[in-house]
Design a protein around this nucleic acid. Structure first.
Length: 329
DNA sequence: AAGTATCGCAACCGCTCCATA
DNA sequence: TTATGGAGCGGTTGCGATACT
């Protein structure tokens, strides 16, 4: 549009604000309100551009700003809101009283983004990272899965994020393996898969079944099993899949008939909109409201970001024996 | 103790949106 | 309908603080 930025004004001071400048700005706004930001500096006796004054006020001097470290609950809320709204920092900030968009943005970029990446979650899509490079990172991921015995309750909210991380990490391993197994051209060394199946991931055949990949998996295993040293394990997995497959996919959680061919695996959390500008704000608000109510329900139940997995059904005994009960729950 | 690398935050930049004439 | 100005937003930068060697 060809406007001239107000900060191009000659002789206007830039950089850090001095306490004297802060005082002038605060006193002026307390007395007169900010009015037109463009004209404020002159009226307040400040050698700054209006934009700089507005930023200083909204991000630092405003009296209702909450200072200090982000609480665990705030972290969880930011992650959740970001999964729904994407990088709409101002929208996110309106739902965190006392926090500014700039503060939340900075906190996201410096802390939460890294945290999610460490969990193996894509901070943009909020979905597990699903590429084969992940396999190379398995030792790190598996170390996350060793966080055990952290029950889900309001009193233990400090542990909740870490518990979620552990679950995400385990699910991500499964998804990566499923990806490998279901590939029409499996290229990853079969001995690595075998080692994983034989140690940490005994329950994989059940989840392979639930993923709706039975035909591909069986074919993939048949091809890969030539490289298995232990043919018995490969055969057992295939048997498990064959036994459970039809049963699992005869009905879904609502009792509707679901076949392996059309079964769609539930997503873990809402992903960021590809183009949030095209998303209706009311729709987003509804998503947030409904999600918030489920978050509130977490105080009385064990509601987690994995609620969508409720549609999967395994017998308690099987799940417990195979060590996946906590995930399936 | 000194030098270097990394981190975190405040502030800036440039773009878009919206109101208005 | 269009041009313009004001405000707000998201991305980026720069610098001080802290950690590491």
């Amino acid at each position: 549009m060809g406007r001239y930025p107000c900060c191009d004004e000659v002789g206007v001071k830039k950089g850090p604000w001095t306490p004297e400048e802060d005082q002038k700005l605060v006193e002026y706004i307390k007395k007169n309100g900010h009015g037109s930001w463009r004209h404020l500096p002159k009226s307040a006796g400040l050698n700054r551009c209006g934009k700089s004054c507005r930023l200083r006020w909204t991000n630092y001097l405003r009296p209702d700003i909450k200072r200090g470290k982000f609480e665990e609950e705030e972290e969880r809320l930011i992650i959740h809101l970001h999964s729904v709204l994407g990088n709409k920092w101002s929208s996110i900030a309106t739902r965190l009283p006392g926090r500014t968009d700039n503060e939340i943005k900075n906190y996201w970029n410096t802390h939460l983004k890294k945290k999610l990446l460490l969990m193996g979650i894509d901070p943009i899509t909020h979905r597990p990272i699903t590429n084969l490079d992940l396999i190379a990172n398995l030792p790190n991921l598996l170390s996350h899965t060793n966080i055990k015995n952290l029950s889900i309750s309001c009193d233990q909210s400090l542990h909740q994020l870490h518990t979620d991380a552990a679950q995400f990490a385990r699910i991500q391993i499964i998804q990566s393996l499923l990806h490998v197994l279901s590939s029409p051209h499996p290229t990853y060394p079969a001995d690595i898969l075998l080692q994983l199946m034989n140690s940490k991931l005994e329950g994989i055949s059940q989840l392979v079944s639930a993923q709706g990949l039975i035909p591909n998996v069986i074919e993939g295993l048949k091809r890969s099993s030539n490289g298995f040293d232990d043919q018995e394990i490969a055969s057992k997995i295939m048997d498990d899949i064959s036994k459970q497959g039809d049963q699992l996919f005869s009905t879904n959680a609502d009792g509707a008939v679901v076949t392996a061919a059309n079964y769609s695996f539930p997503s873990l959390v809402s992903s960021s909109p590809e183009n949030t500008s095209s998303v209706d704000q009311k729709q987003l608000d509804q998503q947030i409201i409904s999600s918030n109510s489920s978050s509130a329900a977490a105080c009385s139940s064990s509601s987690t970001p994995f609620d969508a997995w409720d549609g999967l059904h395994f017998s308690d005994q099987d799940a417990a024996e195979l060590g996946w009960k906590d995930i399936l729950e």
